Measured scan of single mutants.
Amino acid sequence: EDYYQILGVPRNASQKEIKKAYYQLAKKYHPDTNKDDPKAKEKFSQLAEAYEVLSDEVKRKQYDA
């Protein structure tokens, strides 16, 4: 799945936009606030993985290549 789609940001998003999108979605899908939703944990880990790659310039360049 596309990391940009997961975070809901365009491919040319700035680091600030990526961070903002991640924090909004992380708050929304955090397992502690969605105890009754088994998919929230999965969504949250996808968000974390996408953010880890896109927030790191080197990893992001490799991902975009």
Rank of each mutant, 00 (worst) to 15 (best):
R60L: 01
D56T: 02
K59C: 05
K19S: 15
Q46N: 09
K16G: 15
V58M: 10
R60G: 01
I18C: 02
K20F: 13
Y63N: 02
V9R: 01
Y22A: 03
Y63P: 02
P31C: 07
L7Y: 00
H30Q: 11
S55K: 09
E17I: 07
E17Y: 06
K27I: 15
A40C: 08
A13W: 01
E17N: 06
S45F: 13
K61W: 04
R11D: 03
E49T: 10
A26I: 13
K59M: 07
A40G: 07
D2A: 04
N12A: 08
F44I: 07
L54H: 00
S55G: 15
N34M: 10
E49V: 10
A21N: 05
I6D: 02
K19L: 14
L47H: 02
E17H: 08
K41Q: 13
A50T: 02
Q15D: 10
D32R: 08
L54G: 00
A13H: 01
D37G: 05
D37N: 10
E17D: 13
N34S: 08
Q5G: 06
N34T: 10
H30T: 05
L47N: 02
A26L: 14
L54S: 00
Q24N: 13
K20Y: 14
K16E: 15
D2V: 03
F44L: 10
L7H: 01
D36I: 07
P38V: 12
E1C: 12
Q46D: 06
A48R: 09
Y63A: 03
K61Y: 04
K61M: 07
Y22K: 01
V58L: 12
D56I: 03
V9Y: 00
D36C: 08
Y22D: 00
H30S: 10
K16L: 15
Q15W: 05
E1L: 15
I6Y: 04
L25G: 06
V53R: 02
N12Y: 08
S55Q: 06
K27S: 15
Q62V: 06
Y51L: 04
A21R: 08
A65Y: 08
A50I: 12
D36N: 13
V9G: 00
A40S: 09
D64S: 02
L47Q: 03
T33Q: 13
Y29V: 07
D32L: 08
K20V: 14
A13D: 00
K16F: 15
Q5T: 13
E52L: 10
E49W: 07
D56Q: 02
E42K: 11
Y63H: 04
K28G: 07
P38Y: 07
D37H: 07
A48Y: 13
V58D: 14
V9E: 01
A26D: 03
A48N: 12
K59W: 04
L47V: 12
I6N: 02
D64C: 02
I18D: 00
S14E: 06
K39P: 04
S55D: 04
E57G: 04
S55M: 06
Y4P: 00
L47T: 03
D64Q: 02
I18M: 04
G8M: 05
Y63C: 03
D32E: 11
Q46E: 09
A21S: 05
R60I: 01
I6W: 07
K59Y: 04
Y22S: 01
S45V: 12
Y3F: 13
I18Y: 01
K28H: 08
R60H: 02
A50H: 00
P10A: 12
S45W: 15
A65L: 10
F44S: 05
R11A: 06
V53E: 02
E52I: 11
D36V: 06
Y4D: 00
D64Y: 01
F44K: 03
Q15H: 10
L7F: 03
P31M: 07
K19Y: 13
I18N: 00
A40F: 09
S45D: 13
E42P: 04
K35M: 14
A26F: 14
K39S: 11
A13N: 00
T33R: 12
Q24V: 11
P38C: 06
Y22N: 01
K19C: 09
